[in-house]
C-alpha cells in the first residue's frame, strides 16, 4: 500500500491501483502459522514545534496548550495478502480535543472505521480536513459534545481545527489490518502476519517514510525490524 502524501509522486488514484495490484500479486490467505513483526522506530530528527501564530491582536497572553507528541510513528505493510482486505471490519476510534491538542496526534484505522471527535475543552473547536480521502468539516460544537466521521477510503487525512491554527493531527486509513502505531518507547508489533515477502514501511509526521523488505517464513514466529527516522 502506498500513500500519496508519503511518496510524493503517486497520486491517490495510483495508490489505489497499487493496492489492488499488490493484493493480487501477493494473494495468500492468512495461515495458522502467521507470525509477528515487531521492532522499534527511533525518531532522530528534531521535533518541529507547533506554535501559535504571533498573537499580536490579542489583549493578553494566550493560554497554554499541550505540546504535540510527534514521536509516534506508524509501521505498516505496503502490500498485504488479498484476504486481508476482506478481513477488515468496521470499527470505532476516537480522536479527542483536549487542551487545544488532538489526542492522539496520529491515529491509524482501517477503512470503514468511524472516528469520534469529542470536544473535551471549555471552548469551541471546529475539526476539518480539506483534502485527501475524506474532506469534512464538523462545524463548531461545545465541550462535552462529539461528532464523528466514517472513513471509507484509504489514505492520509490531515486534521485541523479552524479556530486554533496550532492544532493538527493525522489519520492514516488502511485497507488492511497490518499496521501498528508505535508506543511511547517507539516499539511496535504487527500480529497475525502470514508467511510471505513484504515491504515494511515506517511513517512519521512530515512525510518521513522508511521502507525495507522483509520475509516471514512458514516456520518463523517473529521477525524483528527496527527503523531509524531522521
Amino acid at each position: 500500500m502506498t500513500f500519496s502524501a508519503l511518496c510524493p509522486l503517486p497520486s491517490a488514484l495510483t495508490a489505489t491501483a497499487i493496492i489492488v495490484l499488490a493484493s493480487v500479486l501477493s494473494a495468500q490467505a492468512p495461515s495458522p502459522g502467521a507470525g509477528i513483526i515487531r521492532g522499534r522506530v527511533e525518531v532522530k530528527r528534531a521535533a518541529p514545534r507547533a506554535e501559535r501564530r504571533p498573537a499580536v491582536n490579542e489583549l493578553g497572553m494566550p493560554g497554554p496548550h499541550d505540546p504535540i507528541d510527534i514521536t509516534r510513528s506508524v509501521v505498516y505493510l505496503e502490500t498485504a495478502p488479498s484476504a486481508a482486505f476482506a478481513d477488515v471490519e468496521p470499527a470505532r476510534a476516537r480522536m479527542d480535543q483536549r487542551n487545544e491538542t488532538f489526542v492522539p496526534h496520529v491515529l491509524a484505522i482501517t477503512v470503514g472505521t468511524t472516528v469520534d471527535f469529542p470536544n473535551s475543552d471549555q471552548t469551541y473547536h471546529n475539526v476539518f480536513s480539506l483534502r485527501g480521502p475524506k474532506p469534512f468539516d464538523l462545524g463548531r460544537y461545545a465541550a462535552g459534545r462529539s461528532r464523528s466521521v466514517r472513513f471509507d477510503r484509504p489514505g492520509i487525512v490531515r486534521v485541523f481545527c479552524e479556530i486554533h491554527s496550532h492544532m493538527s493531527a493525522f489519520i492514516l486509513v488502511f485497507s488492511h489490518r497490518y499496521f501498528a502505531v508505535t508506543g511511547a518507547d517507539g516499539r511496535y508489533q504487527i500480529g497475525r502476519v502470514p508467511p510471505g515477502r513484504y515491504t515494511l514501511v515506517a511513517w512519521n509526521e512530515g512525510a518521513v517514510r522508511e521502507s525495507r523488505p522483509i520475509v516471514m517464513l512458514e516456520d518463523q514466529s517473529i521477525v524483528e525490524a527496527d527503523f531509524s527516522v531522521r
Binding site: A5, P48, A50, E51, R53, P54, L130, G132, R158, S165
Partner: peptide
C-alpha cells in the same frame, strides 16, 4: 505538484526552541 497539498507549510516559523515565532 511536489507534495500533498495540505503538506505545505501551514504554521508559523519557530526558532530558538519556540522562543521566536514568525508569521
Amino acid at each position: 505538484t511536489r507534495a500533498n497539498a495540505q503538506d505545505l507549510p501551514s504554521g508559523p516559523i519557530s526558532l530558538a526552541q519556540g522562543r521566536v515565532t514568525l508569521g
